[in-house]
């Protein structure tokens, strides 16, 4: 089983990201489960959502405390919330930022993980370019596919079209593809097993 925790802020589509991730994994024939951190958060408040995926139905309903991967939709949260809590020693971290890991001041976290497991991607910039709005969630899923191999870009694009309709879906898909391709050039492709 693979477990993903997504951190962001109310209004950034954190819950939608977890839902799309689950739809993508479902599209690949897996048994995913996505759920939010059940808060009454208003726009701007820190939000957490979860996604599990497995080859058999998932029975457990507890929140994810030891994630295999983290997606951080807002880098400002790095110093406000303990986003790295419980991260597996061989886990992945994907951060939405146009700064480097060094510039973000999280080398100590990077040092605990295998090389290259923390990656930043300028998802908000890419979102602004394609959507004209700072909505990084779908963009990050494209990058996440390239980074972890948990899901394919095809599946992400399918999930985007499941959640959104018309031009919004097309633009999100284009943005996700750009982020995917950006990382595919730099990151080692990984084949992760469940």
């Amino acid at each position: 089983m693979l477990q993903v925790r997504i951190h962001g802020r109310g209004g950034q589509g954190v819950v939608t990201a977890a839902e799309m991730l689950s739809i993508a994994a479902f599209h690949q024939g897996r048994h995913p489960q996505a759920f939010p951190s059940f808060g009454s958060e208003r726009t701007g408040a820190p939000v957490v959502a979860f996604c599990r995926m497995d080859d058999r139905p998932i029975r457990s309903r507890e929140p994810i405390s030891a994630p295999d991967a983290l997606i951080i939709q807002d880098a400002h949260l790095l110093h406000q919330v303990d986003v790295f809590q419980g991260l597996m020693p061989n886990g992945y971290v994907l951060i939405n930022s146009n700064r480097t890991v060094h510039e973000l001041g999280i080398e100590s976290v990077a040092a605990r993980l295998p090389t290259g497991r923390i990656i930043t991607v300028p998802a908000t910039d890419i979102a602004l370019k394609h959507l004209g709005r700072p909505l990084p969630n779908a963009v990050l899923l494209g990058a996440f596919a390239a980074q972890t191999g948990f899901i394919t870009l095809d599946a992400v694009i399918h999930a985007i079209h499941d959640k959104f309709k018309g031009p919004v879906a097309d633009k999100n898909a284009a943005a996700a593809t750009e982020a995917h391709d950006l990382l595919a050039q730099t990151a080692e492709p990984v084949k992760e097993t469940l």
């Binding site: 977890a18 479902f26 048994h31 996505a34 759920f35 939010p36 998932i58 309903r61």
Partner: peptide, 12 residues
């Protein structure tokens, strides 16, 4: 049905 745990969960 359990609020949030089921109502807000995405599954098959």
């Amino acid at each position: 049905m359990d609020g949030f745990i089921l109502t807000h969960a995405y599954e098959q």
